[in-house]
């Protein structure tokens, strides 16, 4: 019994020291070889891995947010435009919790999900996106999905073309150029990074 206690105490101390050594060694290797990734893939306009709120982009002469491509309605908490309120591109409150990555956690037969989806459809139609895809009216798992599918981007072409004056065909070509193929050609889905797409759009203008 006393033997067990003594050995347990010693082993826990060793384990804590070992875990810190592993974390520091990992941080060292990461910072040495993959500094950009290890620091959060931060670029001039934010992290390419963290979705942003595009709904507030100023578009002179056109309705707010119509001159850029939008991500999924999923950006809450500390990642939002305002830290104190749920300020994502979701015009609705996702789940009211600020300060964390978050999903709505609505069940598949939830009235709340049904109503939220109906309001999101109306929101998109108000912006000039007549046929929003499922990704655009549902929230993601993390709450800040930085990506959309090429189809999600394509349905926004009329809105963006109207507000920026860039012809629809050029926008379609731009989306094609910015599409990342599924990893190794078969893992996951094809996707477009919204931040990169909008940076390319600004260059095009």
């Amino acid at each position: 019994m006393l033997d067990h206690l003594r050995r347990s105490a010693i082993f826990v101390v060793i384990a804590v020291i070992f875990t810190f050594a592993f974390a520091y060694a990992g941080t060292g290797v990461s910072q040495l070889f993959f500094k950009h990734q290890a620091d959060g893939s931060i670029t001039a306009n934010g992290s390419t891995l963290i979705g942003q709120n595009w709904a507030a982009a100023k578009c002179p002469g056109h309705s707010v947010g119509s001159c850029v491509f939008h991500g999924r309605p999923d950006d809450t908490g500390p990642y939002a435009a305002s830290k104190t309120q749920s300020g994502g591109d979701n015009p609705l409150e996702a789940n009211g919790v600020s300060g964390e990555s978050a999903a709505t956690n609505y069940g598949p037969r939830s009235k709340l999900l049904l109503n939220a989806t109906i309001q999101l459809i109306a929101y998109w139609k108000g912006l000039g996106v007549d046929d929003p895809t499922p990704d655009l009216v549902t929230t993601s798992g993390s709450g800040y999905d930085p990506d959309i599918t090429p189809q999600d981007a394509s349905v926004q072409i009329p809105m963006v073309s109207n507000a920026t004056g860039v012809p629809a065909s050029s926008l379609a070509a731009l989306i094609k150029k910015e599409t990342h193929r599924a990893e190794l050609g078969f893992l996951g889905s094809d996707y477009v990074n919204v931040l990169q797409l909008n940076e390319a759009l600004v260059k095009l203008q």
Binding site: I50, N53, Y79, L195
Partner: peptide
């Protein structure tokens, strides 16, 4: 801070 949409984030 993102100059394209005026967003600031704390990550």
């Amino acid at each position: 801070s993102d100059t394209l949409n005026g967003v600031t984030q704390t990550i």
